[in-house]
Design a protein around this nucleic acid. Structure first.
Length: 270
DNA sequence: ATGTCACTCAACGAGTGA
């Protein structure tokens, strides 16, 4: 009798499901997140905008998830949940300066480098906050460039607070001048792509009207007047392993929802 | 549509950020 090689065993395992979700307060959204984990069953979930120092890690342990978080009082905050061990590489954007805000968590999970980001909003623009956003994007660029040069297969997911193209916005005119849509922000987003990264969603979907965020105000959700600002960018090695990328609109339609909804990628095992 | 939601301080609402 022949024994399966490790490679063959690996090949028959299901793909790894990795999701990202800006929850706009983990305290306010705990039930939503637990319910979604139970139905969607992702292997990894990247959370952004936790908005507090307390992170309910035991709630997720009870559901079979390890967790690592970077927290800050009142604002920002990111956490990575995973069914497998999380080996934290860095909990701040390392280069070429240091972060005073909780927006970055880089970790190895199942041999894959998974980076969770909450990119600064940057409004009002122009101004100090917009400058901070652009500087943060420069530092992200430097970090991802280093990973590319070191040939580290990775994916970076999270709330990028950037509308990449006109088709990612219900009304380009309405968003003109906004920090999420300004040419400077979009140019820096394209610079990330020019490192050789791929926008996972656009590998599998080309239609307009596909959004991840709808403002609470003015019935934007009911009218599907949203923007696509939550993304997964993948290095070429990971892009070659992509099985799918999709937006799950369901959580946005629940009672007391976050203004964002999850994005999910499926990555085949190597 | 000046439209909502969540945070904090200190309060029973105002200011801030998204």
């Amino acid at each position: 009798m022949r024994t399966l090689s490790l490679r063959n065993v690996s090949a028959i395992l299901p793909s790894m499901k990795i999701a990202s979700w800006n929850v706009n307060s983990i305290k306010a959204r705990l039930t939503h997140v637990k319910d979604w984990l139970a139905t969607a069953q992702p292997d990894v979930l990247l959370l952004q905008e936790l908005k507090g120092l307390e992170f309910p890690d035991m709630e997720f342990t009870a559901l079979g998830y390890h967790s690592k978080c970077v927290c800050q009082k009142s604002y920002n905050g990111v956490a990575t949940l995973s069914k497998s061990d999380i080996d934290v590489i860095c909990d701040y954007l390392p280069n070429p300066g240091e972060d005073d805000q909780a927006r970055y968590l880089e970790a190895d999970i199942n041999g894959l480098r998974v980076i969770n980001i909450y990119l600064p909003n940057g409004n009002p623009a122009p101004g100090e906050k917009f400058d901070y956003k652009l500087g943060w994007m420069d530092r992200l660029y430097a970090r991802l460039k280093a990973l590319r040069e070191a040939r580290v297969p990775f994916l970076v997911g999270g709330d990028f607070n950037v509308i990449p193209e006109d088709r990612d916005c219900y009304d380009a005119t309405a968003w003109e001048g906004d920090a999420l849509f300004r040419p400077e922000s979009r140019a820096k987003f394209r610079a990330l792509l020019n490192l050789g990264l791929y926008d996972a969603f656009r590998i599998f979907n080309s239609e307009p009207g596909q959004y991840t965020f709808w403002d609470y105000q003015a019935g934007r959700w009911q009218k599907n007047q949203g923007i696509r600002i939550d993304h997964f960018l993948c290095s070429p090695e990971v892009t070659d392993r992509l099985a799918n990328c999709a937006i799950d609109r369901d959580p946005r339609g629940k009672e007391k929802p976050s203004d964002h909804t999850p994005v999910i990628v499926e990555v085949n095992r190597p």
